[in-house]
Design a protein around this nucleic acid. Sequence first.
DNA 1: CTAGTTATAGACCGATCGGTCTATAGAGTA
DNA 2: TACTCTATAGACCGATCGGTCTATAACTAG
Lengths: 197, 197
Amino acid sequence: MSKEDSRYILVKTMQSALQSKGLHGVGLNEILKTAGLPKGSLYYHFPGGKEELALAAIANAEQEMSRFLEQLFARFDDPLEALAAWIDSALQRIAASRFKLGCPLAAAALDCSPEDTDLLLALNGAFGNLRDLLTRQISRAGFPAEAAADLAVLVLTSYEGGLMMARAAGSTDPIERSFRALLSHVRLQQKEFANGH
Amino acid sequence: MSKEDSRYILVKTMQSALQSKGLHGVGLNEILKTAGLPKGSLYYHFPGGKEELALAAIANAEQEMSRFLEQLFARFDDPLEALAAWIDSALQRIAASRFKLGCPLAAAALDCSPEDTDLLLALNGAFGNLRDLLTRQISRAGFPAEAAADLAVLVLTSYEGGLMMARAAGSTDPIERSFRALLSHVRLQQKEFANGH
DNA sequence: CTAGTTATAGACCGATCGGTCTATAGAGTA
DNA sequence: TACTCTATAGACCGATCGGTCTATAACTAG
């Protein structure tokens, strides 16, 4: 097993742990047991311990999410269709996990103390990148810059809030409802802007 | 100091702890130190320990939120103005805490394991009540039942997601942006329904 | 005053936390 | 084969976790 293999296994295991139990909800021993690796490996690859591993997991989660979104936007001509496809995949993913898995970024954001500035900075960077990505694509759908930026943030916040509520509800209903409302909004507003408002 | 005093202090302290550090982010000893009470008091009032205290904090948070919303909706003729006032107060609250405090419900929802069924059930109940409250009020603003329900969930998810992102960003920007987008949506759709669609 | 109940008060417990340390297996190179 | 460096391997540590226990202060009822 090469260096990169173990490192990656640890990152992915931490990512899953964040999704299902939050930052302080899992212990390192449990993570290592799941990963099938000893403590020595963890502190060899991540001398900074749990926090460094969490930062790596956050970075990886953001990268996965960004790549997935970019692929979707590349596949669909209409950015709004890509958004719908994104939500669709999120619905399937969370239902397949029996509503156990949320967003690792959100979990880390709510489970750390305000003093964990490194974590919060990393999270802010991750959310900022996703927001910018969405803003760019929503602009492509014919929205002016400011409206697109606001809308991108609304998409992101309702996605995160929807995932959180779906986990609590044990149902995809919150995500479905909020995105139905959101899309009907976007379509309406799109017409308005198309009419020159 | 009466029985109810100590009990209430513990509940409020746990509520604050959930907001700033999440369920597993604070220890009981820290909570007791903040509350200025010994361990005996905790287990006298809450024999079920940390989980029972967390459940009480969740119930209290929901009640506070519900009451606050009901008061706002009673004060404003236009439900949408009440929503705007709600967000305004949330902005002030989170900024006043220097972006340390999130929503205790969301924090608990993301920081518990999927096996904590009691917690998840309580959270689902709390979110359900808030959703129903919002649905009722949004209906009053002239929205058909289904659209109002969808919209209520969108309001709630983007509120929760917005609080979370604001905490990570150290800025009210995410909440402001998402609610600006949301309100412009609601106004537009309101016109549509008023025109008989 | 006594008995009984309520509500602290905090010492104490085993388990587990994140983290450190020494030891060594194994691959690559001379 | 012997040396070296990488990457485990896991025993071990003090601190802290949530939780239990006994003791007692404070108040009420008789």
